[in-house]
Design a protein around this nucleic acid. Sequence first.
DNA 1: CAGCATCCCCGCAGATACTG
DNA 2: CAGTATCTGCGGGGATGCTG
Lengths: 142, 142
Amino acid sequence: MAVSNPETAVQPELVAKGTKVAKYDTGEAMCPYRLVLEHLTSRWGVLVLIELLERPYRFSELRRAIGRVSEKMLTQTLQTLERDGLVHRDAKPVIPPRVDYSLTDLGREAAQQVRALAVWTEQRMDAVQQARDAYDAGKRHS
Amino acid sequence: MAVSNPETAVQPELVAKGTKVAKYDTGEAMCPYRLVLEHLTSRWGVLVLIELLERPYRFSELRRAIGRVSEKMLTQTLQTLERDGLVHRDAKPVIPPRVDYSLTDLGREAAQQVRALAVWTEQRMDAVQQARDAYDAGKRHS
DNA sequence: CAGCATCCCCGCAGATACTG
DNA sequence: CAGTATCTGCGGGGATGCTG
């Protein structure tokens, strides 16, 4: 394989005490590499990264842009990505509160990879759809 | 945004009658584009695509190569990817049964995108780990 | 060997209410 | 506005058993 694929178990990820963030990580015993990859490829992680590649967003602005993401999941996703050093959180001490999210340099690199995948998917959707139709047609008469 | 992001609801995906594959799709009402993207970025989908990029694999061979994937999940993942036209399934009518899985041309394109992301992640793991340590250190004294 | 069927549990994610 | 805290369900996914 091209990339390492450690099947050896690794200790559960250490988390800041008092938080329950770890609960939301898919695997308790997984190599860090796979864990980060899952953050990047997570349902909302993908969309957040792509969106932030365009420009910084405020919280609710981002929520509206993505659409159909609950407040909780967006918060969780952003925290995870922030902890991984991919997203920068800028909380301004004003009333009402204003928090801007943007990509770090590291996050920009990651987001570009993710976007490339998303762009490919969008461009090839018609081919995928054709394949599906063919697949379903084949199953129907069987 | 760089890629379209349809927030409009779309009808549930049609599936071959008699199967319950659709149950395992994350979203019942989602645009096809996001659905395919989730197949590609799914936990096991990512690893399957990367592995098959090297060479064709038999079922159990693939299972061993990935490690820690249940038989059920691997079957599901492969079926989903096959339906999307990314994976080719070659079942030889011999006893004992032998089934080879390989990438289609379409799948190879997708897998390359996915692998690029995985490679990036692996290369940047140290930076991510540093960011995490800094994040956790910041939270500890707060 | 390569699956399919069934059972069942845990944890993700949504909904709701509350705070700075 | 931008979050936290708590409750709850339901479906993803593991385990087991059976078939061609």
